[in-house]
Each structure stands twice: as structure tokens, then as C-alpha cells.
Design a protein around this nucleic acid. Structure first.
Lengths: 194, 194
DNA sequence: TGTTACCGAATGAACGTTCAATTAGAAGAT
DNA sequence: ATCTTCTAATTGAACGTTCATTCGGTAACA
């Protein structure tokens, strides 16, 4: 398929990207290994050189996507800036990542609600845990946020951003920068210390 | 299986309830028709007397569950009460429905992110649309809520409640009534007209 | 010459669906 | 009440397909 991509990233990443693209269209179980092989331009057997099974392929794809999400979220983060400004920057980055990678958005949403996530709860991106979780924990410890169960924060934030991204993607009209700020204000006004 | 339930509700509902219970454990794909048949105490062929295919079984199960969710949410709603009080009542009802029906919660979350929802976007509960959507539209028109895209409201609300319900279910310690109110306050503070 | 990467046809298990046969139940006739 | 007839409900073995995975072999490369 995409020879350039294949050349620079190797067949392993080519397979991961093909799987991501196909799952967007057909879902986990509408995507047979033969289809992935064809789309990636490799033989079916080759996939098993890099992944033990379809199941581990999905598990590793999740880490791969989540790593990329974590790095996108953290772009231009500056610990010297006010916490609220950093929060808004991270949220904007997250929104833009979803808009720029709709297949990743769809995959992540499917994954977290699938038996994979339930059966392998420890399978997650180390980068995401180290960096993004740390950022939120800092906000909790320093009382920028309401005094609530910290595990409520992330889903509250994510739910709104994902909803907004899905709306923009399903229509073909984009939210303005001001709209995005307003959306993040919904989140911030909900979770900030009142 | 459950003879009492079967007797009063008929085999169609028995099959629906078995499917719901099994999907919670094994997911869409991991739940073959033969397993549903066994769990429901009917022959495989009998399922096809009530449903055209596995696909339509899932589609009808979604309507069935969403109808029950809608009715649970609307319990004790009183149009004479202040809008904010009605809102809190509906949210508490929704949270309690998730807690009391974890299999429904898991199914709904899986469904909305599956190819079913993408391929059949018009397949939804009429009760839910008539009653719950109407309630939110009223809040938008009468300026109880921020002036934002109305489709952002529902996912924002749902995301937080679902997150809270999942936390309570995954641990085995319950949120207190005050905790639940606090959670709903997060939602309300985010979306209310400031 | 040994090792790694890659191929793709073959395999075998799993699964959704069908269907010919059986039973249950309702309606009607006597 | 009893028998007859017709339809709907139910069964589960069998079918055909799909799909993940295997494996014997070939090429690349060190």
C-alpha cells in the first residue's frame, strides 16, 4: 500500500496502521487477518512474525495509539506556565489529536468498552500514565480541582472532548477556536475548585 | 434457566435477557448464538423464530435496553417542580439505573461505539427521544443551559455519570448520596448558564 | 552457512443459519 | 367432552462459510 510509510517505519508499524484504518471501517471482528494483510501489503503469515495472535495485535495497537495520544497531548507543555493555562493547552491538543486522527479516536472508544480492556486492565501506555496522570494528580494535590474521586476527572474531561470531536467529524463543519475554548470551559467550570 | 422469568415474559424476552447477560461477560463477538440458546434454555433454531439474524437481535436488544433506561430516568419526574430539581432527579435516576443494571451499562457503552451504531444511526428508542430529548431541549430553549451545541449536552452528562457508575461497580464500595450529588454538581456547574 | 524475514496455500475449528421433523395449542365440528 | 384440523412454536443435527493460525519453503542478508 503506502510504500513510503512502509519503508520508513517497517512492516510492524505498517500492520498497526492498517489495522487501525480497517477497524475504523469494520470494527474489531469485521476485520479479519487476511484483510489486514492485504491492506498492509504483506502476507498473512508475516503478521505472525511480529504479533503472537490477533489478540496481542489489538493489545499492542492500543499501546501504540495511546502513546501517540500522550505525546500529542503534551506538545508545548511548559511547567512554568499557570496551571489553568497548561490545562487548556492540553485540552486543545487532545481535541486536535482526535480531529486529526479520527481512526484513533474511534479505535480508542471501541477498545475501552471492549472485553480487551476488561480482561487486560493493566495493558496501558506507560508514557500516558507517567505524564498525563502525573499532570492531573498535581492539579488534585494542589487544589486546582474539586475535592472528588480523582478517577472521575479523566472520564469527565474525556467524555466532553470526545463528544465534541465526534460532532465535528460527523458533520463536516468545524468548531471555531472560540467554540473549542467554550467546550473546554464547560469541563473546567465543572471540575475546578469553585 | 429462570423458569419464572421465562413464564411471565415469553421466550423472546428470555433470549434478550440472556444475550444481555452474556455480552457483559464475553462481548458481542465472544457470544455465539449457541451460547445464547443454551443460557436461555431454548434451541438455537428458536432464536430465529423471533429474530431474523444475530444482527437484528443486537439491534432490538439495544431498543429494549434503551426503553428501560428511558423509563427509569423519568421515574418521579414532575413538570411542576423547578427545572434544576427535575434535572437532579433525572440524573440520580440515571446513576441508579446503571448501578442496578451493570450489564445494561456495559452493553450500551459497547453498542454506541460499535459498527452497529455507525451503520444504523436511526435505530433508537422512541421513548427516549420523545421524553428525554424533549426535557433537554426545554432546558436549552429556556436558557437554563449554556448556549452551546445541544448535542454536546447529552454526552457531557452521560460521560460523567457513566464514569462514576463504573468506578462504583469496579470497586465494591458505594458512593454516598452526598457523593452522587457532588458528581451531578460537576455536570450542572459545567453546563448551566453561568 | 546460518539466521531472520517473508510468503501464501492448507488446515481445522468455530460459528451463523437452515430445515425437515416434532410438538403444542387453538378453533371448529360432532 | 371428544375428535379433527390447521397453524404456530420448537427442536437440534447438518451445512456451508469464514477465519485465525500453521508450516514448509523461499529470499535476503550477515
Amino acid at each position: 500500500m503506502n510504500v513510503q510509510l512502509e519503508d520508513i517505519s517497517g512492516k510492524r508499524e505498517t500492520v498497526l496502521n492498517s489495522t487501525l484504518a480497517l477497524i475504523k471501517e469494520h470494527g474489531f471482528h469485521g476485520t479479519p487477518m487476511s484483510m489486514i494483510a492485504k491492506h498492509a501489503g504483506v502476507a498473512a503469515g508475516t503478521i505472525y512474525h511480529y504479533f503472537d495472535s490477533k489478540e496481542t495485535l489489538i493489545l499492542e495497537l492500543y499501546i501504540y495509539v495511546k502513546d501517540r495520544l500522550a505525546m500529542a497531548i503534551l506538545a508545548n507543555d511548559d511547567a512554568a506556565m499557570p496551571y489553568k493555562d497548561r490545562f487548556f493547552n492540553l485540552m486543545i491538543n487532545q481535541f486536535n489529536f482526535y480531529i486529526g486522527n479520527p481512526d484513533a479516536l474511534l479505535f480508542l472508544e471501541q477498545y475501552v468498552n471492549s472485553p480487551y480492556a476488561k480482561n487486560y486492565p493493566l495493558n496501558d501506555s506507560q508514557i500516558f500514565i507517567d505524564k498525563v496522570h502525573t499532570f492531573f494528580n498535581y492539579g488534585i494535590e494542589n487544589a486546582y480541582f474539586r475535592n472528588i474521586d480523582p478517577r472521575l476527572l479523566a472520564p469527565t474531561v474525556k467524555g466532553t472532548l470526545v463528544a465534541a470531536a465526534n460532532i465535528q467529524l460527523s458533520q463536516h463543519t468545524a468548531f471555531s477556536d472560540e467554540d473549542v475554548i467554550e467546550i473546554i470551559n464547560i469541563v473546567w467550570d465543572g471540575i475546578k475548585r469553585q
